[in-house]
Design a protein around this nucleic acid. Structure first.
Length: 791
DNA sequence: CGCACCACAATTTTT
DNA sequence: TTGTGGTGCG
């Protein structure tokens, strides 16, 4: 066969690129470029709503189907004119010529931040590529590390079935240590200690070095912290446990220090993709760069403007300095937004423009201008919530779904009034975040049982359950036993087993031995039966469920319900993963969050913090509490860096909205039991006036407006209106109460109905209205009257 | 040992 | 305002 000429080689490469391109017709130019640039380091700056996930999916599809064909000059073996012709023709026949080292799915590592994102990625990949997609590693940093560590944790001295401590576990451990070291929780706040330990781990400073440096500095406080750190690591190690940071830092350590392990993974992964790169910390950066170190094919996707987790150690530097870190890297900006209308994007752009130190990006859209952003000023937090509720009722009446609406706030504490308003108005809602299912005390208790059964040396969890339900082993006895354990170098359960041998335990010794025997028995049973069966046995034999059922209060019934719910979750795991091991379930649970269970399909208004909203979108979004000291939060005021993070948060919140955005503030509000009066958020001022439709706005509260009295905003008692704003007419909250039993009414959202029941309640009435379309609804009359007329 | 009461503090939190 | 954690009593 005649070798191809240079000219033909050029044509071949060109034709091949065109061939591959045909598979991705539905992408825009920038997206396409990002999909085709498979080789070497690549930074994709993906603005909000720019089709980032689509790009990731197609990029992977490209790798699997064509390998590096779209991004290489290399010709396949035996390239000849016939192949070139087939390519140029563009038919099925060209496929063989177009492929260049197609990638095996298991050579692709795609890392996201949430299980939810990972799950979505997997789903979409499976839908597009079929079963083959199952071999792709699409997971979170943490779950990737768990998989790596399960294989080689022994090299670090950990058992391969190490347990994972969540934040609450870590906190509880720190508290124990503080107590043992006679340190005061006031001056050594566990939260602060953990943050410091986390920072040290991120900087790869081990406890020994931390302590050494602290001693050298002579700073007594740092020495104490170092001692806590050291003890923390010691106990974690003894318990065979790792916290979230450890998962990453030990993986990095393992890879850095062990050439064999490093080589194994580097040879395995040819393509590494990292999503939400702006949220990575230093350690995660290291991990990704090591894992991609074999091939050098690292693709990171992120948006510096959406970095909102600095407080968790994320460093925006990672994304800002990617270009200098990887000298030959390519940068692609995705700026076309497919989500929001023009005015919403204008608002987002002009807010974020006020930040310094960004890569610079401007979102644009083909969509029309859309509706202006509604800016509403409520009298107080009560009315704020009612405004949101009424607006949603109106939309619902016009045919929109509840689920098309999201209410975003800065802090969870703001959700209360909204909840009441939704309840009063009969609006179905759902709160994402807050206390999570797996953070509830009763759930943690039961999981602690399972943990101890799985790994008996887990002293921390054993401590949690040793006298729960009460079995006559008091705090003092536990303390004594724990002391003995330290002294003898045993784990707590070993002391319990041989409790007779320690005279100081005299009184509780029998019960201790009984309890240890029970745990040992369950430990043995765990080898024979499935986790769900074990759970049943455990709840029965420990008397835990009985304890809750006997109490019979509302709370305890709910708790018992939650405990039973764990079974659902175990069964779900067994079904999903096909795995029947207790360890597997526990590892999964440790990395599970509530966000994962957020169900898009239920028709409910969604309430959550702006942080939780990242990555989601809704036709209509309400951002409430648009006031200085709330958003931006008080802690950010006067702190330029923090302020920029708040502004990014604002950018994230605004860009969640597809069609309609409401910004709501209140002239005064009660927060943490105090009434305050704040000016309108500076972020509102950063939005062009032309995008805003002001409702109920009153002068004197603007951020930009000069204050007549110095310090007014901080000192003025809530009740006093600003001097130059005439006192607003006092709005009587009492609505027309001329509704009575049997009335035919027309409600803004629920349509026509009849009042079938009226129950006096707290100076108001709870009414049951039988609506023609949707049946009976319970509403508070006073509130309902605002949205309802008599027929 | 367990419960009741009081003081206190209180962003955000993908794992 | 809410939740939590510590103390003191039965």
């Amino acid at each position: 066969m005649q070798a191809m000429t240079t000219e033909m080689e050029r044509r071949f490469v060109e034709a091949r690129r065109t061939y591959v391109r045909r598979d991705f017709k539905n992408l825009n130019d920038r997206q396409l470029e990002a999909v085709l640039a498979t080789e070497g380091p690549l930074l994709i700056l993906a603005g909000a709503g720019s089709g980032k996930t689509t790009v990731l999916i197609h990029r992977i599809a490209n790798l699997l189907k064509y390998g590096r064909a779209s991004d290489s000059e290399e010709l396949p073996e035996g390239a000849d004119e016939a192949m070139l012709a087939a390519l140029e023709q563009g038919g099925e026949a060209g496929l063989a010529a177009a492929r260049l080292y197609p990638v095996e799915p298991w050579r692709i590592l795609a890392i996201t931040f949430t299980n939810k994102a990972a799950g979505e990625l997997k789903d979409r990949l499976t839908r597009m590529l079929g079963e083959e997609a199952n071999d792709i590693w699409a997971c979170t940093f943490h779950s990737a590390c768990v998989r790596i560590l399960r294989r080689d944790a022994e090299r670090l001295g950990f058992p391969s079935n190490f347990t994972i401590y969540d934040t609450a576990d870590s906190q509880s451990l720190v508290k124990h240590i503080l107590k043992d070291q006679n340190l005061d929780e006031k001056s050594f706040a566990p939260r602060m200690l953990l943050a410091e330990i986390s920072r040290a781990k991120d900087a790869q400073i081990g406890a020994a070095r931390y302590l050494k440096e602290a001693r050298a500095s002579g700073d007594i406080r740092r020495i104490r912290i170092g001692e806590v750190y050291e003890e923390y690591m010691r106990r974690m190690f003894a318990a065979g446990a790792m916290d979230f940071d450890d998962l990453i830092s030990f993986t990095v350590k393992l890879l850095q220090e062990n050439e064999e392990v490093r080589g194994y993974w580097q040879r395995r992964f040819r393509y590494v993709l990292i999503d939400e790169y702006q949220d990575t910390n230093h350690l995660q950066y290291l991990l990704s760069s090591i894992l991609a170190g074999g091939s050098g094919n690292i693709c990171v996707v992120g948006d510096d403007d959406q970095s909102i987790y600095k407080f968790r150690g994320a460093t925006i530097e990672n994304i800002l300095s990617f270009e200098s870190e990887y000298k030959n890297c390519r940068v692609i900006r995705l700026e076309q937004n497919y989500r929001s209308t023009g005015q919403i994007l204008d608002a987002a752009n002009s807010v974020i423009r006020n930040n310094l130190g960004r890569k610079g990006k401007e979102l644009w859209t083909n969509k029309d201008r859309g509706n202006p952003i509604v800016l509403y000023m409520a009298d107080n937090e009560h009315e704020e919530a009612q405004y949101v509720a009424s607006s949603i009722l109106g939309d619902y009446g016009r045919g929109q779904n509840w689920r098309d609406h999201a209410v975003l706030y800065r802090m969870n504490a703001q959700s209360n009034q909204l909840e009441y308003a939704f309840k009063r108005n009969g609006i179905p809602y759902r709160i994402v975040g807050g206390t999570r299912f797996f953070d509830r005390a009763e759930v943690k208790d039961v999981l602690a049982y399972l943990c101890v059964i799985a790994s008996p040396s887990d002293d921390l969890r054993l401590n949690r359950i040793i006298n729960n339900p009460p079995r006559g082993i008091g705090a003092r006895s536990v303390e004594l036993a724990q002391e003995i354990a330290y002294r003898e170098g045993l784990s707590l359960i070993e002391v319990l087993r041989g409790a007779d041998r320690y005279p100081e335990l005299s009184r509780a010794a029998i019960r201790m031995r009984q309890f240890a025997a029970l745990l040992d028995e369950l430990h043995e049973r765990a080898k024979e039966i499935t986790p769900d069966q074990l759970l049943d046995e455990l709840l029965e034999k420990t008397g835990y469920l009985r304890m809750l059922e006997e109490k019979n209060t509302v709370e305890d019934t709910a708790r018992a319900e939650n405990v039973r719910e764990i079974k659902t979750s175990i069964l779900g795991y067994q079904k999903e993963s096909g795995d029947r091991t207790l360890e597997g379930f526990l590892a999964d649970v440790a990395l599970y969050t509530d966000l994962d269970s957020y169900d898009k399909d239920a028709d409910c208004v969604v309430m959550m913090t702006m942080h939780s909203a990242k990555g989601l979108e809704f036709p209509t979004v309400f951002i409430v509490g648009m006031e200085e000291t709330i958003f931006p939060g008080i802690r950010a005021i006067g702190e330029p860096e923090e302020m920029e993070e708040e502004r990014r948060l604002c950018y994230v919140a605004i860009t969640r909205a597809m069609r309609q955005l409401h910004l709501v503030c209140a002239k005064q509000r009660m927060i943490f039991g105090r009434t305050t009066s704040n000016r309108v958020s500076r972020f509102v001022d950063e939005i062009p006036e032309s995008c805003l439709q002001k409702k109920n706005m009153q002068r004197g509260y603007g951020y930009h407006e000069r204050r007549e009295e110095p310090g007014f905003a901080h000192k003025a008692p809530a009740v006093r209106p600003p001097v130059h704003a005439p006192a607003p007419p006092v709005k009587k909250a009492t609505p027309a109460t001329d509704f009575s039993l049997g009335d035919r009414v027309k409600h803004k959202a629920f349509g026509v109905g009849k009042i079938v029941k009226m129950t006096p309640m707290g100076g108001d009435f709870l009414i049951d209205v039988e609506f023609d379309r949707i049946g009976v609804k319970k509403l508070m009359l006073r509130v309902a009257a605002m949205n309802m007329e008599k027929l």
